[in-house]
Design a protein around this nucleic acid. Structure first.
Lengths: 194, 194, 194, 194
DNA sequence: TATGAATGAGGGTTCATTCAT
DNA sequence: CATGAATGAACCCTCATTCAT
């Protein structure tokens, strides 16, 4: 009269991750309980600990997976684009669409202690993403397509705008910009031509 | 041997709010415990409940205070500025400086349920801030200083960038842009002049 | 800007006792808080401790007062009655009416610890009341008005019936008997005459 | 080093109920703490919440169990008795013995708010018990065994006497009548035969 | 692999009591 | 006499984690 479900380890692990993504997203790290996650995954509480060392590990795995996924998508998207302006637009568009599609996971949970692992993974990802934009800007300046400017600062601004977009999905869904308008503004600015 | 400190009511309340701001900011709403806050405020646990009905009330008061403060500062800052471009720069500058100065409070706590009051107050504030930028842009377009564009979209983008700035203070302090560069980018864009 | 109300000590003490009677009756000993009582009495919390050592003392005083009151009323009521049957009816009637009139105080709070003082006072009162009935029955038997019986047992039964009446006022207000019917039953029994 | 005992669910639940009965009875609803109950049951605090939603649920379950038990015992006891006088004596005897045997549970907790469920169940039980006595009396009158009287009033008096008996077990253990004497008094009254 | 009863620290909150004013 | 801010133990309850099965 013991275990009922028999599945492969991978199957269970995936199931848990999917469920956990939803639950963490709905309730936050501290608000989500292992019981909730187990319930959503259709597994026992003990079962969770077969695949993940603890709550933090589960959360960290989740974050890393999503981050790797997005890193890969970024690489794919930009692979064959030469024009820096187009690359910029495409990057912004991709990130906005990705955020809208995976709205169930918000990559942000403040400094809540004990999630250091997740934070570390995030930090690396963030830096990588910034490098990507910096590179685009640098190529734009070199090729004369972009005006001379501090590529690092521009990258920071764009990252912040995208980060703000994600955050707005939670706190102010009415304030979500369209990626076309965003690209347009970044490229042309708002001042009238003389 | 009961109570040691005797303070005026106002003094205690202020002390609590300052401490709570720090603790909520460090640990998030759920991660912050009333014991932590009491400790940080140098007051007993029971003392907290002398000034605030409960945790949510304390948090809500905090949020409202900060929001009102920032609303007032926004009004003051923009009062006498006529040039839309200058207004834009000044707004961005003020918000960035404010965020840096009050880095201890992050106006964001996700969907954590039961903080509806705080959320509602935040929503109103967010909308107000957006209206302010929209108005600046509108005046810029009317006066011919800005090119024709969708003022609502521009406002959203700027809000998101600032929102992202605040969030970055927590998750990626290296990615904080300078307000001059930001204003510059918004105004002039990144494309080279033909 | 200190104290507002200035009254004689007796006045305040009385006020507190009246308020406490109501509050204890409504919420039980543990359910009643000193704050509630202070509020109901229109006095400060600290003021309570000017007149009573602590919660238990306040409760005990309350109980003792009511008990003394009822003891006196019992004596008064039975003073001039000679006929044992009439004495019995009158006693029952008086007790029922007293209970109905002072329904705000139920002289019963289980074994709730720390109310030992109250309990002790109650014990003495209970025994006294039983002695009164025993005496009536004894006189009835001696005079030939009552049949031979164990006066102690009869007293216990009557006390229990009255005690049950008070309790019923709380838990089953529909089950309150009329004192006439009760006296009648006690005196004549329920069996048909042969 | 986590949990020590491993028991079947039923075993634990029973253990808790037994312990809770004792503790509630000793200290009252508000006076009894979940910690006390857990200790008395030899289980952890958290364990309590595995079997009962909360304190009120635990209390309610307790009350319902005891009430159902006594209802069943009443039915069994009176099933085959035809003579109303005998039925009356037997009923009283059974109730007194039951009270003595299960002295650990006092079915009474005043108006303490938030125990509405328990109260409702109690109300129904009380009414049922009264109906049982009324029926006995009615049959007695019809058969000519009892004198004409108000069966409802008689039932109330008997219920109150028994209720008072239970209460006396707590507040005045010396005042417990014998069921024989009680039956005798109810049946024959106290007046001498002319 | 899988289960879920069991644990106990820790969460938010209340409240009898004290004491500087 | 009177006040009420302050205290801190104790309350009910939750939840990450473990382990016998």
């Amino acid at each position: 009269m013991i275990h009922v479900n028999k599945r492969s380890g991978m199957e269970s692990k995936k199931k848990i991750l999917v469920a956990a993504t939803k639950v963490f997203s709905d309730y936050g790290y501290k608000g989500a309980s292992m019981r909730m996650i187990a319930g959503a995954a259709g597994i026992s509480i003990g079962g969770l600990y077969l695949y993940f060392k603890n709550k933090e590990d589960l959360y960290g795995t989740l974050i890393r997976n999503r981050l790797d996924d997005l890193t890969e998508e970024t690489r794919e998207t930009l692979r064959d684009i030469q024009d820096p302006a187009e690359a910029m637009s495409t990057f912004i568009s991709m990130r906005v669409k990705y955020a809208r599609k995976h709205r169930e996971l918000i990559l942000v949970l403040g400094k809540e202690q004990a999630i250091t692992f997740g934070l570390k993974a995030k930090r690396k990802f963030f830096e990588d993403q910034r490098r990507v934009i910096e590179e685009i800007v640098r190529k734009g300046i070199t090729s004369g397509r972009f005006r001379s400017c501090d590529e690092s600062e521009v990258a920071k601004i764009i990252i912040c705008a995208l980060r703000g977009f994600i955050l707005s999905m939670i706190v102010e869904p009415d304030a979500l910009f369209s990626h076309e308008e965003c690209s347009n503004l970044i490229l042309k600015g708002i001042l009238a031509k003389k």
